[in-house]
Amino acid sequence: MLGIYLSGTGNTKYCVTKLVKLIDASADVVPLEDEFIIDKIKRNETVILGA
């Protein structure tokens, strides 16, 4: 599972992190601006997007 967020103030980051970790404690959470985002999306079956 992968959580992706776009957050200017940090609120969306907090919410996506909280949700993803409740579902799967070992999941990654990364910003949309991450330079390796495409590779991370391809490696995960489930992606949660918060914007």
Results as ranks from 00 to 15, higher is better:
K42M: 03
P31Q: 02
V29F: 10
G10H: 05
T46E: 13
M1K: 06
S26A: 14
L22I: 06
S26W: 04
I4C: 00
T17P: 09
I4N: 00
A27V: 01
C15I: 14
V47S: 06
S7T: 01
M1Q: 04
G3C: 03
I48V: 01
L22M: 14
V16E: 10
L32Y: 07
I23L: 01
Y5E: 08
V47A: 06
N11Y: 12
N11R: 10
L49D: 07
A51L: 14
P31V: 10
D39K: 11
C15L: 15
L19C: 14
R43A: 15
L19V: 13
L2S: 02
T9W: 05
E45P: 06
L19T: 14
S26H: 14
T9P: 06
E33V: 13
C15Q: 14
L19M: 12
L22H: 15
V47H: 04
E35T: 12
Y5T: 04
I37E: 03
V29T: 08
I38N: 12
F36K: 15
V29Y: 05
F36E: 15
L22E: 15
V47W: 11
M1H: 10
L2A: 02
V20A: 11
T46W: 11
I38V: 14
E45W: 07
G3A: 01
D24P: 11
I48P: 00
A25R: 12
L32E: 02
A51Q: 08
T17S: 15
P31D: 07
L2E: 06
V20T: 13
E45R: 14
K21W: 12
K21Y: 07
D28A: 08
E45K: 15
D28M: 01
L32R: 06
L2F: 06
I4K: 00
K21E: 11
L32H: 00
E33P: 05
D24R: 03
L2N: 02
A25K: 15
V16D: 10
I41T: 02
C15R: 10
S7C: 00
G3Q: 03
T12A: 08
V29Q: 04
G3D: 03
S7Y: 01
V16C: 07
G3W: 02
E45G: 12
L32P: 01
D34R: 13
Y5K: 09
G50E: 01
N11M: 09
I38E: 14
L2T: 00
K13M: 13
G50Y: 05
F36S: 15
N44G: 04
V16L: 11
L19N: 09
I48Q: 00
L19E: 12
P31L: 05
N11D: 07
D34Y: 05
